[in-house]
Write a protein that binds this DNA or RNA. Structure first.
Lengths: 340, 340
DNA sequence: TCACTCGTGGCAATCGGTTGCGATGTGGAA
DNA sequence: TTCCACATCGCAACCGATTGCCACGAGTGA
């Protein structure tokens, strides 16, 4: 066919996969008929369609997604951007998204922003042209940057709100209320919030809600941080926590809570005897620590699933069905108890 | 331009992004010149190239990966298939792969096979046409299926060997030797291996190596399983372990080891007093358990990185540089000790 | 028997880039 | 001044699939 355009791919010696042209030639039909037979049900005679399907199967036809996406403008690929792939918080989220993609016939492209808004923006720059839409989980971007992205592609946010953009956010307030109630009931009167990164919407939000509920219950409340939302961040915050004189700490996430727990053990501070520690999310491992971590669970797998479905629904024109609320709930384990 | 082909995408009201044709028109040049200026360094006059770059920046040109991949046959996308995204083993692997992809200008497509060879094969069917190559991590496929895939795309295996196909496999033997040595030195004389899925090459391999080293040291050795490679698998194996009468168990992976640990705690069995437990991989959380888990660490992040680089090297024609060996090493914590 | 409708399938343009080859123009050497 | 070489850029085919419009033929009603 091509005389002067030699395939440059490094695909080497592999045989190129069959195209609709191959099928058409085999059956002495036109490529357009083949195309229609394969994805416009009823458009061609049933008998012809069957012949085409048989030939396709025989030739091992697989379709070329790139070629298809050129005229249609749709790639059937979705981007998922998380701030840190090694953070267990995201595992369930990724799985939820991945499974939903699979069911809906989409392909998931994963990207990591390494807790940096800049990296995230650069990554998105590369990602955007290739996908039909993006799920931004725990984005470290400025509101404006997110709006800008939303201007060129459909976007669904997880754990963040920016204006009216579609967002999947679990019911923060419910879990926070339960947490404060739990601590107040145990008899604590002064609590601290160990904040995550300043760029994290969710960290600010949890802090706000905690603050409100704490003062509503007449508790003393202080905020410590911001710090990095990982083990190290929790670990390094111990001295500030001690200095604050509180009897209970809520960390922005479980990773930080576990880090703090470790620091306590290293310093010989008894948890929950001397200090109560709570986290958020109920990640894998939260029940493995000693003492096991009391935490506020959020259904991230369902969030991932919901985000993808909402995105795909937008593509199909239908306004996404109002996603059912994602309740958060406290999981009481061993790191909380009544203060002396 | 198009009179009778109305864009079907649901991209709605968004403005289409600029193309090389827009740039060409703006500068009164030909699209081919624009194309060359943008990716054939030196092929067009420096002054022209600069004008083109300026115009591209001004118009916010982003290139269309689909359009580019059509003539070249290369998508600059890599597939990564893992058996279970929520298994912490893979987190570091995914990160390693993701970062390497980023550096090399590739996009990572993540897929999960849910521990099922069938699902994996189906997933790959959808994935293959879209990527330049695939990294198969802990594949649950038959050797033949893998060979078949390798016939159409470049493949790199992680934690598995199939014939001469490129594979990144950590030095299993070294870690196993250390593990057996550790237990033997402590005074254990009978040990068990708790196997993972029968379809897991790595599980069989670890079992084999353990067997060899155990008999070489004159230890009694039994194998239990196969079971699912997760918490549940470990948990449900406790009775078989007890029945075997061994004083030390090595589980196929940390998840199973932790599951077994939990079952022990529930049954009031003291670890390491009554039973020693070891795992493999040193996943996140292995040091959080009580007692903290002794395990054989394997550098999965480096494996992910190496796999991607090796894949990309093949594309560029150059035979992949022999990857440096990935040593495994025992991490002694609290779940092993001398038997009574 | 004639005309009209409807079911089928083909034609050809198009998506956005890439690239072999040829056309053009400039500069330098003879 | 003439000729030639080389640097630059344009032409046009092509990657594989989609789709609006049209042509053809068979079946139906008048």
């Amino acid at each position: 066919m091509s005389e002067h355009l030699s395939r440059v791919g490094t695909n080497g010696n592999r045989k190129p996969s069959a195209t609709i042209y191959d099928i058409a030639r085999e059956l002495d039909l036109s490529p357009s008929t083949v195309s229609r037979a394969l994805n416009k049900p009823g458009r061609v005679a049933a008998k012809t369609e069957q012949r085409i399907r048989d030939a396709a199967a025989k030739l091992g036809y697989r379709g070329n997604p790139m070629a298809r996406s050129l005229p249609t403008g749709r790639t059937r690929m979705l981007g998922l951007v998380v701030s840190d792939v090694t953070n267990p918080v995201f595992f369930r989220l990724v799985r939820g998204a991945e499974q939903a993609c699979g069911e809906l016939g989409y392909t998931l492209v994963l990207a990591e922003s390494q807790e940096s808004g800049e990296v995230e923006y650069g990554t998105l720059d590369r990602l955007l042209p290739a996908v039909d839409g993006v799920v931004l989980a725990a984005a470290r971007l400025e509101d404006d940057q997110i709006r800008q992205i939303a201007a060129s592609k459909d976007v669904v946010l997880i754990n963040r709100r920016v204006g009216e953009l579609p967002a999947i956010v679990p019911d923060i307030d419910g879990g926070v209320a339960q947490a404060i109630d739990h601590l107040a009931t145990l008899g604590h009167t002064s609590i601290a919030y160990l904040a995550g990164p300043a760029t994290s919407w969710m960290s600010r939000e949890r802090g706000e809600r905690l603050f409100e509920h704490a003062v509503a219950r007449g508790l003393t409340f202080v905020e410590i941080g911001p710090t990095s939302p990982d083990l190290g961040g929790g670990q390094s915050a111990l001295r500030r926590v001690q200095a604050s004189g509180v009897t209970a700490v809520l960390a922005y996430n479980d990773l930080m809570a576990i880090g703090l727990l470790r620091a306590c053990r290293a310093e010989g501070i008894d948890v929950p005897g001397d200090l109560n520690i709570m986290g958020f999310d109920d990640i894998f491992g939260a029940d493995l620590t000693t003492p096991a971590l009391t935490t506020v669970r959020s259904p991230l797998d369902r969030a991932g699933d919901a985000a993808v479905r909402s995105l795909v629904a937008t593509f199909d024109g239908s306004e996404p069905a109002a996603p059912d609320p994602l309740p958060t709930e406290i999981v009481v384990r061993e790191s909380t108890a009544a203060p002396h």
